[in-house]
Amino acid sequence: MRVGPAPKPLRMTNPTVGTGPLGGIAIAPGSPGNGDVLAQRQVLVDGEPSSVSIRRLGGGRHVLLEAQVASRVVIEPETRGESGTSIREVLVDGFRFLVETEPERIAALRERATKGRAATAHLGPLQVKAIIPGKVVAISVGIGDTVTAGQQLLVVEAMKMQNELRAPKDGTIERVGVAVGVNIEIGDLLVVIN
């Protein structure tokens, strides 16, 4: 089994706004909510105007009504994230997401930093970190080995399954941070590829 990167929170810049793209959706200013209807907006979904409303049911439960289609959404109370962001757990269609809302000032800073990183990302060494806790049962590479993207690096056993970790890019193995038999936690450094 191939496992991709661990899910990170969805990120949303301060949503207390009027117009602008929201995950491909434009929200136009509209009438403020009344009663239990929290918000009613005209939105553009794939360029088509549509009416969206959200209604509070209590206990974190909401009904999202979009183009006459209702879906149940649970929005849990927010918790404080790092550097002024707030994080809410949101349950939709059986999925759970962490929606991280960040103030605009921080979003702008982060975007600048990301742009700077993107320019140099293909050059520097890449640290491959554990995304599931488990036990290392096999290591297929050693320091100095040349690897190509998709090549197996090591095998981690978690929840009775063996998960193959593959190289995310071409490069040379600069460091192997674990040994066979070692128990690893999320975030532990496994391999460095340069």
Partner: peptide
């Protein structure tokens, strides 16, 4: 998409 829309609206 719906999670972001709902959270934004709420």
């Amino acid at each position: 998409r719906r999670a972001l829309l709902a959270t934004g609206l709420a």
